[in-house]
Structure formats: structure tokens, C-alpha cells
Simulated scan of single mutants.
Amino acid sequence: MLSHHERRELERIQEWFERDDPHLARALGQVGGPGGWARSRALRYTIDALALGLILLGAVTLNFGLIFFGAVCLAAAACLHVTRWNDTAPRHRRLD
């Protein structure tokens, strides 16, 4: 827990950032999931399909390398699905 003096100093620094460089203050204050290509729903589903295709192809041909690479792609796709959170724009936070 911050003391009253520490909280006041942090508020002064935040106000200074907002006056001096509002773009930097907005970038530092963003809360939310990843942006850009990681939010792309088509990319996430394409990686899902690629991973499942590699696993099925590896199972049919009994190729452990394809199964392993498919599992790695599936893990990456799961990370993209989990970290997406939602498709809303990121919010900005202020010190309480």
C-alpha cells in the first residue's frame, strides 16, 4: 500500500505525463489484450486448422515430427485464443 505522499507524487508524475506527452501517457495507460495481428479472428482459426491438419496428417502417415509440430501450433493457437480476451478497444487506466 502506498503512503499518502507516494500516491500524491505518482499523481503529479501522471499529470505531468498527460500534459507533456499525451500520446505516451495514453500508451503507458492502456489495459487490454494484444493488439494488431494477434486479435485477428481469421488468423486464430487458420492456425487452429493448420494445427489440426498437421496432427491428422502425422497420425495418418505415422510421422512423429508432424504430430509434434501440430501440437506446438495447437499450443500457440490456444495462447492466442486465451490472450485475446475480447475484441473491444483497450481501455485506459488512472491511478486511484
Rank of each mutant, 00 (worst) to 15 (best):
G65P: 01
S3P: 04
H81S: 00
G70C: 03
F64E: 12
W85I: 15
A89D: 15
V31L: 15
D20N: 07
L95K: 05
W37Q: 15
L66C: 00
N63M: 02
R91T: 12
T83G: 10
G35R: 15
L57G: 07
C79E: 13
L50C: 09
R39C: 13
E9I: 10
R93I: 11
V72Q: 07
G29M: 01
L2E: 05
L28I: 02
R84T: 11
T46K: 13
R26F: 06
G58S: 04
N63V: 00
L52W: 10
A89K: 14
N86K: 06
A51D: 01
Y45P: 01
R84D: 14
Q30F: 07
R84P: 01
L54D: 06
L57F: 05
D48E: 10
T61N: 09
H23S: 09
D48P: 04
L56F: 06
D21K: 01
E6I: 03
L52C: 05
D87S: 14
A27H: 05
I55V: 11
R7Q: 09
V31G: 02
I67N: 02
W85V: 15
P22Q: 00
D87L: 15
W16P: 00
G29N: 11
Y45A: 07
D48Y: 10
R19Q: 07
S3W: 01
Y45W: 13
I13W: 15
G33I: 04
L10R: 09
L43Q: 03
E18C: 00
A27M: 04
G32C: 08
L43C: 02
W16L: 11
R8L: 06
L10V: 03
R12N: 11
C79D: 11
I55F: 03
W16Q: 08
A77W: 10
F17E: 01
R93N: 12
D87M: 12
R44N: 03
L10E: 01
G33M: 06
G29A: 12
F64P: 10
S3T: 15
G58E: 03
L62M: 06
H4E: 11
N86V: 04
A27S: 09
G35L: 15
H5F: 08
E15H: 09
E6V: 02
T88G: 15
S3D: 09
H4I: 06
H5D: 10
L95G: 03
A77N: 11
R12C: 03
N86D: 15
W85Q: 15
C79L: 13
